[in-house]
């Protein structure tokens, strides 16, 4: 597997791609997803999409005593918008590459920079 972040050169909203590409490089890693309702789930990252929806397998709820109904659940789909944090294995993250990607993305003009954001 090629572990690199690459972006299509002429995307109008590059913003969508940085973390999507980043999470794709973490597929197969064990992560802990903490939701906005405080439920935290550890599992293997199976897939991610552009909304940062996440599929996890071999899951284990961090505080099982508080959420006993989750014990039989073995895999799950998490809507991106309910995520607060994702704890990542540090050794799986190339921080220099990430920073470069973030800087490169910052150079793209955004709709906000253009000033007039019109809604039809």
């Amino acid at each position: 597997m090629v572990r690199s972040l690459h972006f299509p050169s002429k995307t109008p909203s590059v913003s969508r791609f940085l973390f999507y590409s980043f999470f794709k490089t973490l597929v197969g890693q064990q992560v802990t997803v903490e939701l906005k309702n405080d439920l935290a789930i550890t599992g293997v990252l199976i897939s991610v999409d552009q909304f940062l929806n996440i599929k996890l397998d071999e899951i284990k709820v961090v505080d099982e005593a508080r959420y006993p109904h989750m014990i039989p659940v073995k895999n799950c789909f998490i809507r991106g918008s309910v995520v607060r944090y994702v704890q990542l294995p540090a050794q799986a993250v190339d921080t220099a590459l990430l920073q470069d990607a973030a800087r490169r993305e910052a150079q793209q003009p955004t709709t906000a920079q253009q000033g007039n954001v019109r809604v039809k």
């Binding site: 906000a112 007039n116 954001v117």
Partner: peptide, 8 residues
């Protein structure tokens, strides 16, 4: 200092 179209 400044603001943008999202009101950041």
């Amino acid at each position: 200092a400044c603001l943008d179209g999202y009101m950041n």
